[in-house]
Nucleic acid binder design. Sequence first.
DNA 1: GTATTCGTTTGATGTGCATCAAAGTTTTTT
DNA 2: AAAAAACTTTGATGCACATCAAACGAATAC
Lengths: 244, 244
Amino acid sequence: MLTPLNIPEGLKVACSNCNLRELCMPTGFNLDEMQKLDEVVEKRRRVKQGELLFSNGDTFTSLYAIRTGFFKTCVISEDGREQVTGFQMAGEIIGMDGIVSDHHNCNAVALEDAEVCVMPFSDIENLSRELPGLQRHVHKIMSREIVRENGVMLLLGNMRAEERLAAFLLNLVQRLHARGLSQSELVLRMTREEIGSYLGLKLETVSRAFSKFSEDGIIEVKQRYVKILAPDALKKIFNPQTYY
Amino acid sequence: MLTPLNIPEGLKVACSNCNLRELCMPTGFNLDEMQKLDEVVEKRRRVKQGELLFSNGDTFTSLYAIRTGFFKTCVISEDGREQVTGFQMAGEIIGMDGIVSDHHNCNAVALEDAEVCVMPFSDIENLSRELPGLQRHVHKIMSREIVRENGVMLLLGNMRAEERLAAFLLNLVQRLHARGLSQSELVLRMTREEIGSYLGLKLETVSRAFSKFSEDGIIEVKQRYVKILAPDALKKIFNPQTYY
DNA sequence: GTATTCGTTTGATGTGCATCAAAGTTTTTT
DNA sequence: AAAAAACTTTGATGCACATCAAACGAATAC
């Protein structure tokens, strides 16, 4: 059997016939350019659940395109406090935190068995001098991350617990939906504590917010399984003003 | 008189003899490369205190290198809540939020009369295909911003009011010191409310934290003027564990 | 199959910061 | 120079979320 999950680690696989291409790579390339693009992906790497793709202080060499699986990235303060800075899924690129200092500035942990495409950054840079489309794409990916983090700052600085959770759930399903999954059902890959860390809340507060949404008939929750029954109600919590 | 402040707006001025060059431009270029670099700076633009350099929704065309003055960037939620996402000073680059969608995703407001170098992004991209040093520099600047925002997320998600203010002050003086200013004295360019917005606090809380530091003999405050009397005490507040 | 560990839920209580309020100070306007 | 506006400080009170605690459920180990 030769499903994606069974391709041996280290084997070279082409972007050109990858079904995630539109998510992590630029579009509109001709055949010649596509072939060059294929060469950026050095190899694949498997990361088991709980294992680190890279950790704080590691020498930076590559960006990683997530092929399967789910990651969290987190920074840890000197006195041991952990802040989850993001959750990443198939088609998303991680590792850009390492460029500035040639060392990674956060940990990337697989929350389920995962496979990533390893893209040596020097190769990306070389090729993006040849392919303006790739160059622009790299810039956009980094800019997107900056804008995403701006949004998280707004959330952390201004929103109340239930607003944060509503925003979080809506963002997750939206991204899952863009990957062909349901826009109403999802299975959380992270614990309440990890959600709390991302949202600046304690796990008990996250749990209570889930229970509240459930009591109000907005969602159905059973452990990691979540079904969004009333997306508009969630959006209303997230952004009350819109509905006044 | 021809001090930098009196150069007419729109006049082309070279990076090659700019005293902020090491801060905003890559180093190690030869004369030929420096000349090319000079051409990236299309012109200068003045922004008066309180005016916008760009605002949310504006078409993205250029990055801006701050030559003089001080800016804040902020995002505003649909229901009107403002989150200051950063304060920027001379030698820093702003505008990268606009790359991903060709439109700016935040407002950039001058907190004092300012002058910026306008660098059309298409020119930056063109030249950085020729000059790997510039290419790498652009990547580093964006990565630095991602890492900075990671740090702010840690602050917003995990720290208490006094820790946040201590971290804020230490960061500010460190950056001012890198520009040849004192590492113990500073004049704040922003209001208590703007500091609070950045730190996820209300202005009263910021004011109380200032007063507390002042009572404890850690700083001297008089309105916008701040003198850091005991930097180690500030660092200890910011990161208690280090001193156990 | 039972024991253990890990994660989640729910309740009771505490606290750090927000909110409300008012006075004081500085800056800007006229 | 007086008046108005903007910003800051300080006190009193309230509340959202943290903390503490215990029971429950699911997953994993033995």
